[in-house]
Design a binder for these strands. Sequence first.
RNA 1: GCCCCUAUCGUCUAAUGGUUAGGACGUCAGUUUCUCAAGCUGAAAAUACCGGUUCGAAUCCGGUUAGGGGCGCCA
Length: 485
Amino acid sequence: MSVRVRFAPSPTGKLHLGGARTALFNFLFARSQKGIFLLRIEDTDKERSLKEFEDDIIDSLNWLGLKWDEEIIRQSDRVDLYAKIIKLLLDKKLAYYCFCSKEELEARKQEMLTRGETPIYSGKCRHLDAKEIQDKIKRKVNYVLRLRIPEKTIVFRDFLRGEIKIDYRQIGDFVIAKNEFEPLYVLANTVDDHYQGITHIIRGEEFLHTTPKQILLYKYLEWDHPIFVHLPLVLGQDRSKLSKRHGAKSISEYRQEGYLPEAILNFIALLGWHPNVDNELMSLEEMIKSFQLEKLNKSPAIFNTSKLNFFNKHYLKLKPAEELLPLLDFKNFGKFGQEQKFYANNGCVYDLLKIYKIIDLGKERATLINDILNFVNFFFNDFDYDAQLLLWKNASLLETKSNLIFIKETLDKIKEERFDDAMELKNFLDNIIPRDKRGYFFWPLRVALSGKDFSPPPFDLMSIFGKEKTLNLISKAIDKLSSLI
RNA sequence: GCCCCUAUCGUCUAAUGGUUAGGACGUCAGUUUCUCAAGCUGAAAAUACCGGUUCGAAUCCGGUUAGGGGCGCCA
């Protein structure tokens, strides 16, 4: 039997980390078993389902690289199928009309709750005869359709948790449809899983309690039910279920903030799953290779951003500058012009090669894509700084000034072309400046070129700026010091 | 209140009856370095509690406690 699984979100909110993880595990299981992974949009709730959310879910899944294999199915397109099943259940008297009002139901629920009982439906409308039913329908009394439960306990098997025992009397006759044409989740989901030939239902633990209801439906409809796999929940910092309600970030928001799909996938994969070997850095391909459903965890996971950030940093470093370029926002730094040259706000003109170099310098230090350019903004915008910043440790103004003058004069003798190679510049200066004196030369040089107390090494800065700009910036620093002496 | 699920460092987890309880992130220290980042080395840090089974328990069983989920004409 070949594996068929699905991710079946309802478009009532954007895709968040928990949903993405459910999709990922379904995807990994399908791929690792050479099976099929499907996407189904569960939009039976017309009030809450929004096209905007459906788009977000589809975009996010695409962005993560979780490709589904067959056409997307929408429950809103399958009304006829559900109607047929509803009619069947009605005809067989397995389902029945319930005319109880919401107020009536709510009152009974409160009453049971105060008595310390589980609130369930009384079964009041269970035995209405055909005449009464027709009569009430004619009088347009509101109704729903309920399934008749057996008065016994069911034992079913969850793939991860083993046998689970639940008494149907704890559930009561539950609603399966608003009317003959509007099924609820419990029914539509069951029907679709059957007709799509789903072999394994891999979903969040919040659905564990609907399993006995669905198993009953499978039984009434004389279908075999799939294997149930209930994933432990992903919990937020407050230890409660991740949901839109308490501000869980959506995948699209993470994307906007500058996270890479590789990082998010790697991070969520480790929430409840662990490969055999103790190597946590995995591409999607590697995950597929080592994925085993049996290795899934049973206990909920609280996610914490610092590890996600670590992964993002890691994958950022691996990403070539060419691929990062289209993801970056240069609008505060200058403009691209003719022949792919970049015209920076400070008058510098960089070719593509230099832009790549700049990106590489930024990405070594950034956590998020959006941080990259901020780490190297001195390449683009004029900057100012406090002259005191030029002083290394206990260095004096005078000493620092003369060191900068020395560096300037030394650099002045170097040919312009040699400025392109940071390594060469480093070797050159390392040979001239005594080892124990480097801080007194390189620190002020670096500050002169960046205006910051932290930045890439001065040689990298010089290799981007080129000879002329470098000498200008050093002169500026010397002037700053002079004004204080 | 009732039903169900879960329980290893702060967090994610490994160890499916025998390990000095391992790894990752984070934290701290050292090292490298002009700075930052990265790297390298090291440290602190856990089997919720009480019983039982067993020569031997993180692991099996029972109870307690704690956390979570559910109790919708939502999914």
